[in-house]
Simulated scan of single mutants.
Amino acid sequence: MTPLRIALHQGPAGVPGTPDESLAALDDAVRRAAAGGADLLVTGEMYLTGYAVGDALPRLAEAADGPSAARVAKIAADHGVAVVYGYPERDGGRVYNSAQLIGADGSALANYRKTHLFGDFEMAGFTPGDTPVVQARLGDLTVGLLICYDVEFPENVRAHAVAGTDLLAVPTALMRPYEFVPHTLVPARAYESQLFVAYTNRCGAEGEFHFAGLSCLAGPDGVVRARAGTGAELVLADADPALLAAARAETPYLRDRRPGLYTALTRPVAG
């Protein structure tokens, strides 16, 4: 079983609405990731267009197989590195906050639509997705996709674990002052659901938002394998299948679950 080397591309917020600039920066990041032996690069949420796009969102949204997807596919194939990137997806009259996984050969492997929208901008601009678990196989690992706020719901991550996800790729646009999420919550999610979490945030100021950075790769033992600071950075670390097996044997949460006791999780919260 061969480890999968992950590159976390924590980029500056930049100028919203500039996908050409984002794609040029992605090409450079994937080239550097390839030089470091990476198999997979993960970007932040809404990477292609920027997050604070406001009323330009409908104009910037593209189909999952649109022109930007074709350019990402070429970048991945040129450098032999798989890519997970965030973007606004248009499907008919609806726009989704999406993340797509492109294989190292340029093939489209998985597309996920954010299921838990955060804040007024997302609630007003996006339709929530309704498919909680989206996966694809990369090397010896099954890779799943979530986006930012999604990972803060333990049910989402546990659903992936039960479905066989080994590595969760999570494009993120986490703002200050919520730094406790990458510091505390993400490693806890990795530990309690016994999988790797590649959490890639934006950084810097964009419109009214100030992104926290602190991208990380957390392991199934709760240990953070790599951590970015608060500025632009490319961080590499390995997701090792051997560590997954060892952690799951030592801390058998998935084996020892009692799903029959958890039916209350599907009930509305009293209020």
Rank of each mutant, 00 (worst) to 15 (best):
E21C: 14
R31P: 02
V95N: 08
V197T: 05
Y178V: 13
L236Q: 00
L26R: 03
A33C: 11
D27N: 14
A218L: 08
T200V: 14
A29H: 10
M1Q: 12
T266M: 15
E21H: 14
S107A: 15
A56Y: 06
Y87G: 00
A246E: 14
G119P: 00
L40G: 03
G129C: 03
A70G: 13
R202H: 11
A52K: 07
M46S: 15
Q135C: 03
P67R: 07
A205D: 15
A246K: 08
V151N: 03
M175S: 11
P268G: 13
R227D: 06
G54H: 07
A264R: 13
L57W: 01
G219A: 10
R258W: 13
C203H: 01
S193T: 02
A110S: 03
C203N: 07
T131L: 09
G139S: 00
E206Y: 11
G204C: 10
R59C: 07
P12I: 08
S193M: 07
T200S: 10
D105L: 11
G80P: 01
A56F: 04
T115F: 09
E233H: 14
D78N: 10
R258F: 12
P67H: 06
A173Q: 03
H210F: 10
G14I: 09
E208I: 14
G204P: 00
Y253P: 05
A169I: 06
R31E: 15
A247P: 07
M123W: 14
S98L: 06
